[in-house]
Amino acid sequence: MTPADAATIVFCLAGAVFFLAGTVGLLRFPDIFSRLHALTKADNLGLGLIVIGLVFQAESIAGAFKLLLIWGLALAAGSNTCYAIGRYALERLPEKGPKEVEK
C-alpha cells in the first residue's frame, strides 16, 4: 500500500464518519433547524474529506481540479438549499411552533 492509498483510506473513512453522524443527527434531532445543522455538516465536511481522499487517487491535475470543483459546487448548492429551507421554515414560525414545521 502506497502512502497515497493510505491517505485516501484515512480521509474517506473520516468523511464517512461525518456522513454517519450527519445522518444520525437528521434522524434524531428534534426540529428543522438542528436537523439542517446536522445535514450541512455531513454535506460540507463529509464530502470535503471524501473529495480530499479521492484527490490522492486522481490521475491528473485536471482530474483533481474537477473533484475539488464538485466539492465547491456542492458547498454552494448545499448552503443555498439549507438557507432556502431555513428561510421557508422561519417564515412559518409565527403561525406554528418549530416542531410542526419539520418535514
Binding site: L73, A76, A77, N80, Y83, A84, R87, Y88, E91
Partner: peptide, 18 residues
Amino acid sequence: SNPPGHLLSWLIRALAPL
C-alpha cells in the same frame, strides 16, 4: 408568492453560465 432571496438569485446567476 415569495420571491427568492438575494443569495439564491446570486447563486443561480453564477451557476447558469457554469
